[in-house]
Amino acid sequence: MSRHTYALRAWLIQRFSAVYLAGFLAYLVIHFLIQGSHGYAEWRAWLSHPAMGIAGAGFVLALMLHGWVGVRDIILDYIPALGMRLLLLTLSGALLAASGFWALRLLLLAAG
């Protein structure tokens, strides 16, 4: 990607992350329909599987990116004042990043 990337990148990230999120959520629904409810030990075993760890980390990353583009869009649409816009972008970015790192840390802990 060399030209016209600035605005296009966010649009592409939103679409690719949406596809991943939809696929992962479909997998979760099917998994829980087949496996039924998990106890603590089953949860840990399931989340500590390397494939699940990678897929879960992908889910968290995709959720962060998708959320960021969506929140950014809302702020760009509805907040015309530049100072307030920058403040809200910074706060929402920090909140999303903190939530994402917290979720990734949980996945790492589960992987043991």
Binding site: R3, H4, Y6, A7, L8, A10, W11, D73, L76, D77
Partner: peptide
Amino acid sequence: DERLADLDGPFKLFRCH
């Protein structure tokens, strides 16, 4: 190329939802 470059940025084109 010039037309596409002019449309770059988060507002001119990409505010369409």
